[in-house]
Design a protein around this nucleic acid. Structure first.
Length: 271
DNA sequence: CTTTGCACCTGTTGGC
DNA sequence: TGCCAACAGGTGCAAA
């Protein structure tokens, strides 16, 4: 399950193989994803050229002259480039076959992802239009972030995972960023000083950038578009490390639930 | 309008 | 060893 670094890694992995190529045919073996696969993907996409692959939040956007294919990988989705003659494995639900018979193949055991078609301006699409700033862009700043936290009693961990605040901070990196900032995940967002929030903005950028550099986290079923795993999980300081010693102070890492999601922190280092 | 919890689905894990 | 409940990377949306 892809967090933002995995989506970015996937984008970088597939883009060289599909940008500028024409779609020859599409196979949808299982169209029941989070929402039904848009019919345009089978009916209109063949014949069109994928000019460019972009990413917005955790959405991958494949641009054509007639519209944009919006792909989300959900919890368990992955994309790989494979020869179209290769027999699909279990849960490989969709093929976008390109001229030359290479194929963008989508696998998603839990089917929480989506394949949707946007004919109009992508920034006006329902799923895209209300998204907050990209964490790695220069529009994600303390001057944007801090005012949003005023009077928000929600735990800071939930706050940074809210896509209207900032996109792309998933469950793993939320815990990791807060550890780096020394902030307790349950602290109400409004009760954090501007100085500490400034540090948090910086740490979110650092954590995500590092993960992208290292090729994305591989947990369970995520596989790069190359079929090679990433290695960032070896660098995780708190996520998945309940009862193990803190890398800084040796205090056992605690696991709690915040907003129905597992959360990890060091009770000595984070306040 | 804001906040909370559910729902979607399959596969893996851990406790008894 | 086997069974079954609990849990897993996301997030839109209905309900409160």
């Amino acid at each position: 399950m892809p967090e933002l670094p995995e989506v970015e890694t996937t984008k970088r992995g597939i883009a060289p193989h599909i940008e500028g190529k024409r779609v020859s045919r599409v196979h949808v073996r299982q169209g029941k994803l989070r929402w039904p696969v848009s019919p345009e993907i089978e009916q209109q996409l063949p014949g069109l050229i994928i000019h460019r692959v972009k990413r917005r939040a955790k959405y991958l956007l494949l641009e054509t002259d007639q519209g944009t294919l919006i792909i989300h990988l959900g919890m368990s989705g992955s994309l790989r480039i494979v020869d179209a003659a290769v027999e699909p494995e279990k849960h490989e639900h969709i093929d976008i076959v390109l001229d030359g018979n290479s194929c963008l193949r989508y696998k998603d055991p839990r089917r929480f992802g989506c394949f949707l078609w946007s004919a109009g301006a992508i920034e006006e699409h329902k799923l895209i239009q209300h998204l907050g700033p990209e964490p790695l862009s220069d529009v994600f700043t303390i001057d944007d972030f801090y005012p949003k936290a005023r009077n928000k009693k929600t735990p800071i961990k939930s706050f940074i995972m809210d896509g209207k605040v900032v996109v792309g901070v998933g469950n793993i990196y939320a815990s990791e960023a807060l550890f780096r900032s020394g902030i307790h995940p349950n602290r109400p967002a409004t009760h954090i000083s501007k100085a500490r929030m400034t540090q948090l903005v910086s740490d979110i950028k650092t954590i995500l950038s590092q993960a992208i550099e290292q090729g994305g986290t591989t947990l369970k079923d995520f596989v790069n578009s190359d079929g090679k795993p990433g290695y960032f999980q070896q660098t995780l300081n708190v996520y998945g490390r309940a009862k193990k010693p803190c890398s800084t102070c040796d205090t056992p890492i605690k696991q709690v639930t915040i907003g129905q999601r597992s959360t990890f922190y060091c009770p000595h280092c984070q306040h």
